[in-house]
Amino acid sequence: MEKIGFGEQPYLVYQHHDAGHSHLHLVSINIEKDGKRIDLHHLGIRKSEPARKEIEELFGLVKAEGREKKEEFSLEPIAIGRVQYGRIESKKAIFNVLNVVLNQYKYSSLAELNAVLKQYNVLADRGNENSKIFLTKGLMYRILDKQGKPIGVPIKASSFYDKPTLKFLEEKFRSNEVRKPLDKTRIKNAIDIALLNDRAMSINELARLLEKEGIHPVFRRSVEGRLFGITYVDHTTKNVFNGSSLGKQYSAKAIEERCGITVNSKGKYEKLPSNMVSKS
């Protein structure tokens, strides 16, 4: 700020996590306390560029000039085969996933959070309802295998540097309860457009269409394979919504009907005739 002539100006610096990488914004004004105006003409070329270069040299920073623009950061699932199932390696791998998901995504329940974490082979686990960890409101993080089953050593939430405990998550749940209406509308519109045609389609086909829009539907099924729930993970807006929270027509049962799928008297899935498929 001093090098570009704003050292005496009031300013605000804040961090954003609404993109693939965290970044800072800086806001100030160009009217000085005596009413004079700070000249902004070619400020970038005249002062900002030389200041940046000087600061890079002074603090030994990576130089921006001449660097090719890299692709947007993309979080990858934990590579199960590369993780040694000991405490240190598992903890490091889980931390890398938590550091992004907990801070960037908006979720209002443990189920919604796990809908995201499971895509990166991680599970936030409270244990069964009769377990000591559940009764004492504890929480563990675990690595999942390709079949979605926990493997290796569970890591207590309290042992991580940022302490992503159940208490911490519950505060996140409360703060994330209120979302922007447009975030819900984006998912609903994507579903409605995908189901515009009059023919029946499979749930998996619907999933493929939604994933093209950056929306990953997570299907919850019973032991018998019955679909009883859907959670939508929008990787574009970083929002997670349970289907029923978007409206009845986006719940598991309604989506099956809109896809043209019903359960017959024998408890088996079958497609409805095209003239009976409801897309509304």
Rank of each mutant, 00 (worst) to 15 (best):
E256R: 12
Y14T: 06
N128V: 13
K156M: 04
K163M: 08
D34W: 00
L166H: 01
R82L: 15
G225S: 10
I31V: 07
E65F: 04
G267K: 02
Q147V: 07
L144T: 14
A157L: 08
I155T: 01
P50Q: 03
N239I: 02
P77L: 03
G260A: 00
H25V: 03
L272K: 02
K91G: 02
V97M: 05
G247V: 00
Y161E: 15
F95Y: 10
E112L: 03
S265H: 09
S22M: 11
E72W: 07
I133T: 11
I45R: 07
R220K: 15
S202Q: 10
L144G: 05
D198M: 02
G138I: 12
Y107F: 09
Y107H: 07
K167P: 10
R174Q: 15
D198C: 02
G7D: 04
N176S: 06
D234I: 07
N103Y: 10
L43W: 00
V100P: 02
L206V: 01
E224D: 09
R37A: 06
L227F: 09
K91W: 09
F73G: 04
K36W: 13
T185C: 04
I155A: 05
L61E: 05
I230P: 11
L144H: 03
K266T: 01
Y107K: 11
Y105I: 00
R52C: 00
I31N: 05
E49D: 14
V218P: 00
R226G: 07
F134V: 00
A19V: 12
L196Y: 11
